[in-house]
Design a protein around this nucleic acid. Sequence first.
DNA 1: ACCTTAGTTGTCCAATAAGACTACTTTGCT
DNA 2: AGCAAAGTAGTCTTATTGGACAACTAAGGT
Lengths: 102, 102
Amino acid sequence: MTVKNKNLKSLDQFIDEEIGEKGSKKRDRFENEYDAFRIGALIQQAREQKGLTQQQLAELAGTNKSYISKVERNLKDIRFSTLQRIINEGLGGQLNISINLE
Amino acid sequence: MTVKNKNLKSLDQFIDEEIGEKGSKKRDRFENEYDAFRIGALIQQAREQKGLTQQQLAELAGTNKSYISKVERNLKDIRFSTLQRIINEGLGGQLNISINLE
DNA sequence: ACCTTAGTTGTCCAATAAGACTACTTTGCT
DNA sequence: AGCAAAGTAGTCTTATTGGACAACTAAGGT
């Protein structure tokens, strides 16, 4: 199930309005420099792929649904260890990280 | 320049001894489940590629060399925003993240 | 319309990272 | 051997996450 609160401005919508549409130069620069905003969406996407609710993910990861909600909406500056735990224990997945040097 | 303190057991060496050699089943499992241990090495590698000292990286990233040292040795559970800042502002690079679901 | 489930938001406290500073150790150079 | 630079480690304070809980909103089903 994919429930969305209609009265809540989605992050994508917010960014579209505030930064500019995808493909615009400003938006590209923003996405390159601040991909932090994608970590929440990444987790949400993976969670939905696994068919889990926030509540279920929270239990698997040893936390609570309110925290998961905040992380998915990037309202929390997550610690690396917590990110790992959510992905490994919660989603049964694996975090891949690399650094691109220009 | 690649300076290494000889009396300090390197992380790789430590893991070799405690977990097992690379390629062993136990080591593989460890690396898959806990790749957190690689984030420090990743930063160090990128820093050396850019020819920066810990001091220089620290200044660029708005922190201090002692913190960089701790992060590279995985003695700190870094926050996501801090990781971003070190990579973007310090290394002038870009963090790539993805999640593998089994 | 009602009920249940899912998700969001606010508040609070304890645990811990961030940051600054100092001192020590190691390395490389002359 | 002596010096300077690089890196490591400890301590302290402050800022903020992690985690728990309760209350609220939205969506779907009956």
